[in-house]
Design a binder for these strands. Structure first.
Lengths: 229, 229
DNA sequence: GGCTCTATTAATCAAACGTTTGATAAATCC
DNA sequence: GGATTTATCAAACGTTTGATTAATAGAGCC
């Protein structure tokens, strides 16, 4: 008899922590930092309100841990892919961009594990200029961004620093927008544009980005020519 | 003698309305819908708190009017540019994309009139999946999107519907991200990437998008070939 | 079986929230 | 010039917010 009720031991405490993070992720994604409420998150996670302050001291730190959890996982994948790729010489631009964009896009399409909520969260703070968002971006994403930009310049030496940074940011913004999956593509195409076929989207995003990057590289070369002629 | 104080007549009331909209735009952009407060907006606008409910019934309607004001202006520009362009035959892809992206990017770079705050607001709600954001996007931006997509297919008949929708959404996401101007480009390039030279950015964005779109078109053609062979 | 540490609870706090109210000036109308 | 409309204000409404507290229940150790 007795309890299928939640136990009070340490094993359960990890469950509670994860449940809080999951609920917070959904809330922050849908309502923003200011719009999400600790009470709502607690209710959604099925825990007492005070537990959130017990595990995470305050709302700010909760927000930070939500982002850290996912950013750590994706960036580990991207770093590993870069290691693998450059271990056997200099890759093609296509291989490089797929290595950078695939983990991002796949996380956004992982509906079962809550990745799509996080996707919308990233899009939101990575395009915001308030201090909290800027901190999140620079802390969690600037390191991999710098490494990626350096990698792009190895693959395409014609890219000067400014063009490479632009190329990276443009590509990432495309990947993030397809991550967010707002359903707008389906609406605008009357259902003909499927935004949930991951492979199709990775293919389209990589093709779009690589062509765009090559165009930026040519622009850079042409500008240089103008100056010397 | 007496008052340099604000007058209570109708001429001043328009000033108050505009001041509220400007302050609300900044607040919504920085803090999100939930994070922005009527009190803060009133303080920032220099008006009594109740005035906001007097001119705009509630927070939701204020939000809507903030977006409507700017979206109306930009989309009028884009529609006019499309009219002009197609009046003299079918334009090049470059001309078309510049017509679509320039008004957007220029508004985001108009620091003096508050356009850059609106830019961040658009990026945020256009990538969100909550009901309020979806409504804003579909009401204010779906019509011009549909017209733009149709225009792209006239210029590049190889684009099927799905590819054209993707091409449009990818291009817009790039333009929006450069609009948002978070300062990240400067940070990642140690200042070598200037994100405030409007002409340079329009040029880079158009070049990147057009190359990407042509790549998507080629993908579509190749997939068709695979099916028939 | 008592002790200690971790996990959890309900109750409570001051502050801030969006919204409404009633009063009052000034401008407009007839 | 009296009536009406528009614009503005300070104050208050009830609710919700993030955070803290003191009490307690269970697990693991000796």
């Amino acid at each position: 008899m007795l309890s299928e009720l939640p136990k009070k031991d340490a094993r359960n405490s990890q469950k509670a922590r994860e449940a809080i993070l999951d609920a917070a992720e959904r809330a922050f994604a849908e309502l923003g930092f200011g719009g999400a409420s600790i009470r709502g998150i607690a209710r959604d996670a099925g825990v007492n309100q005070a537990m959130i302050h017990y595990y995470f001291q305050n709302k700010d730190q909760l927000y930070d841990e939500v982002i850290d959890r996912r950013a750590g996982a994706v960036n580990a994948q991207r770093n590993a892919a870069l290691d693998r790729l450059f271990a056997e010489g200099v890759p093609t631009l296509e291989k490089l961009m797929e290595a950078l964009l695939r983990p991002t896009i796949e996380m956004g399409h992982d509906e079962t594990r809550g990745g799509s909520a996080y996707a919308r969260l990233v899009v939101s703070f990575s395009n915001s200029a308030d201090e909290r968002s800027q901190n999140m971006t620079s802390q969690h994403y600037d390191p991999i961004a710098s490494r990626s930009i350096a990698a792009m310049r190895k693959v395409m030496p014609e890219l000067d620093m400014a063009a490479a940074v632009r190329a990276y940011l443009y590509s990432i913004s495309v990947a993030l927008s397809v991550m967010a999956r707002t359903g707008r593509a389906a609406r605008l195409s009357q259902g003909r544009c499927n935004d949930s076929d991951t492979e199709e989207i990775v293919g389209a995003t990589v093709a779009f980005s690589c062509a765009g990057i090559r165009a930026l590289a040519m622009q850079a070369v042409n500008q240089f020519d103008e100056k010397v002629e």
